[in-house]
Design a protein around this nucleic acid. Structure first.
Lengths: 210, 210
DNA sequence: GGGGTCATGTAATAGGTTACATGATTCT
DNA sequence: AGAATCATGTAACCTATTACATGACCCC
């Protein structure tokens, strides 16, 4: 991964929209909101403004014209530069071709799950399973609505990807619960024993000092 | 999701280690590094120091004693408070039970993939597939080594989860390539046509102003 | 027509990353 | 002993988030 001069992922959809036509900042906010881009990138009005500044400093966009509508302060309309266009294309290509190491919170939680009691862990995993199923159902639903409304499936691939990940997660959770609770061979026994032992070993580490 | 007083995910493994015994900052860095926690959370020495400060300000850890070994500056050993212990447990539980909306970069890229030429997209997807397979092979390998070395599988569930996600991604990629390239019904045709049309429509938006 | 909510923007603060600094340790 | 590298820590800088400010619009 090359070091990007503007690293916030939000810059990518922003440049992408400017590919179409010059816009001013709030225009971008509106477009991002209207297209529900918040599902793929995190943003607030403030971050959009920030990113636009960064893009200008980096030379990826320039002032195109200044509008003076009604009582509003002057609005600067920005246009993509050639360099910006190149950056946008290249960044997008590299995001597709080069898988990045990500840090899903659930992976972190899993790496620490051994600290919980096994039956507690199972309960929580079951709770998660229910929630994931709910989200999945909603997402599937809104996807079908969009398709029915005529949106080409090409513009829903990101959603389809998320659904696929959720499917995988559900499968994984089921397998994990099974691994823990299997009658003879499950991890629950040794796991609980190990926890009990480490708790009795250091019964209040402080006491040694008193 | 409640608002955490210390929100950096790194705080979670840090508190978790302090559950075991009090440590000083560099000790934490060493432990995190030794356990390869960098796979699940992003950290550098500097961020560990920062998080420790934040945790102390929040009252989740306190100074336990001050070591004066050799020529090194005094080293403050921190211990988890009861509140810290509670926060750690509760946070971990909620990370498991409540799926969080994440922002994988690939989802963002997919949401913009329509801006590329279809055959270009396919080439890039194939490239990604190859890379994912490589990473997956490495991970599987190191996992098997760890198992062979006697590490209980419970401590490898996070890795197993990542592998499952990669499997899903590979399946998704294959499906997407298929969707694009299918002989009669593939998206490639309309997609390319649409691109050509939007390019001819605004042949240099600037020209209208000259 | 005054009280609420939305559109639009800025400033203050907190958070994170990079670069660097200093002393130990190891190797030749 | 000097160079290289590792251990340990700090400071400066950049990024992101929160809170707020102002005017427009809408509703009784």
């Amino acid at each position: 991964m090359v070091k990007r001069r503007v690293s916030n992922p939000l810059a990518l959809p922003v440049m992408s929209y400017l590919t179409t036509r010059p816009m001013h900042r709030y225009d971008l906010v509106r477009t991002l909101t209207a297209n529900d881009d918040g599902r793929s990138v995190k943003f607030t009005p403030a971050t959009v403004y920030m990113v636009v500044e960064q893009l200008e400093k980096a030379g990826f966009i320039v002032e195109h014209e200044t509008l003076r509508t009604g009582a509003y302060p002057e609005r600067i309309v920005y246009a993509l530069t050639d360099e910006g266009r190149a950056e946008c294309r290249e960044w997008l290509r590299s995001l597709i071709a080069d898988p990045a190491h990500e840090y899903p919170q659930f992976a972190l939680a899993l790496s620490l799950i051994g600290a919980l009691e096994p039956d507690d862990a199972v309960r929580l995993l079951e709770e998660r399973r229910g929630r994931v199923e709910e989200v999945q159902a909603e997402d599937r639903d809104s996807m079908e609505k969009a398709l029915a409304a005529g949106l080409p499936p090409l513009f829903l691939v990101d959603e389809k990807y998320r659904l696929a990940l959720m499917d995988a997660e559900l499968g994984f959770i089921a397998g994990l619960i099974e691994d823990i609770t299997a009658p003879e061979t499950g991890w629950a026994g040794p796991w609980a024993a190990h926890l009990a032992q480490s708790r009795s070993q250091q019964p209040g580490d402080d006491d040694a000092h008193r």
